[in-house]
Design a protein around this nucleic acid. Structure first.
Lengths: 227, 227
DNA sequence: ATGGAAGTTATACGTTCGAACAATAAGGGA
DNA sequence: TCCCTTATTGTTCGAACGTATAACTTCCAT
């Protein structure tokens, strides 16, 4: 077997870009083919580098997996938090509605993100680091949801708030999995409306019409309003 | 390395028992350590046989995986169906409640079953056989739920029934995942009560008290009623 | 220009996986 | 009781995996 005539040429990139590229490559591979498809060779090929480079930026493949999972979970929580913090504190109903709705549009409810979540979720059962990442994001999410529920203008009842937070969290999770797995089975905005209607019914409140997504289909070719 | 002096002795078993043992071994390994822990060697060891025997009963490891996944999904659907068909058709409220409650007690809501579901769920994204098994059980489940909702004594509205079936299915899924993953975070029967209260609120109905699980904790050592 | 640090490639190693296959023990029918 | 089918074992094989490491290329400082 003759020695290769030439090495392939390459460009040097900053550390941040390389790490982001490798994480994005790992995420997309997991979303498409599950964790077993995210081999170091496949990740490197998708990122446009050679396998050895992974070990230059991550001590092990496990460390890259942790970084990718943390990126996925944090991006979802940050998106919901960002949707809330722009609203005034004296409008708890709109704040809760915005928190809910943020989960059912990109970049949170996408096949890629649901696929990565599905591929990685069982790893939290044994890997302590993955479990810690999962707990920090997941329970933090539910606590924040319970705080938004407790802020509603009605008599205080912490035990009821806990039960309702559990129920609302479960409904959001189930709808997110369904909507992200089968995006073509729902009209635009339909999942959001189902979530707001269902949670409103469970909490005994009615969310303002402004909290709902704009009606998606005039279903007529001529639209008076734009995008 | 000397040839082994003696082969280990063994007993011949019927085909059905061997297949069941291998499926159960694969399921428990997936529940504990994810799909990557369910190697042919580990499965054979747990079933008390040698790896070669797997290929005697299944053409490939993939075929064993399909059999195990089908067993998991079918056992869950059968359990919910069985809970309904013992109730009279003229009591749709109790039938719906029984269908819901069946998902939140053994043998459906167990860490093992949730773990197997989590470990296998991402395989449905690429493997056509797994996808078919998933669709046949999952959509069949939701259709049956929608039929029970449509049978409620109230004005007919198929579009509303569809939206409510989606919401109820999502709530059941989310609670089942939570309750099965963290069984110690809930009191006995608490998940069932949350599900019945939440679904009742979303549908605008009140389930009869007989549909709820018996209060679990007298929290006093002396109980008047039995086990 | 040029030297040197560091990013990147290419190759190799040891392990483990699913699979294949020949050898053997077991148990029922004649 | 013997024999023949077959359930089961023990071993081996090629492929692919994560990891390790030396050699090469790029690019900035000088």
């Amino acid at each position: 077997m003759p020695a290769p005539a030439h090495r392939r040429s390459y460009r040097r990139e900053g550390e941040e870009k390389r790490r982001d590229d490798l994480i994005a490559a790992a995420m997309s591979l997991v979303a498409e083919g599950g964790p077993e498809a995210a081999t170091v060779r496949a990740i490197a090929a998708r990122a446009g580098v050679t396998p050895g480079l992974i070990r230059h930026y991550f001590q092990s493949k496990e460390e890259l997996t942790h970084a990718a999972y943390r990126h996925v979970m944090e991006s979802m929580t940050q998106e919901a938090v960002r949707a809330v913090e722009t609203l005034p504190a004296d409008d708890p109903l709109s704040r809760l509605a915005a928190f809910i709705a943020a989960n059912f549009r990109p970049p949170v409810m996408t096949p890629l993100l649901v696929g990565v979540w599905a591929g990685y979720m069982h790893l939290g059962r044994n890997d302590p680091v993955m479990h810690a990442i999962h707990e920090a994001t997941y329970l933090g999410y539910r606590d924040r949801l319970q705080a938004l529920i407790a802020a509603l203008p009605r008599p205080s009842d912490p035990a009821r708030d806990r039960r309702e937070a559990i129920a609302c969290n479960a409904l959001i999770d189930g709808l997110w999995i369904e909507g992200g797995s089968l995006p073509d089975s729902f009209d635009p905005g339909e999942v959001t409306r189902i979530a707001l209607d269902g949670i409103g019914a469970m909490l005994g409140v009615t969310f303002p019409a402004t909290a709902y997504p704009a009606t998606a289909y005039p279903s007529l070719p001529d639209r008076k309003t734009n995008p």
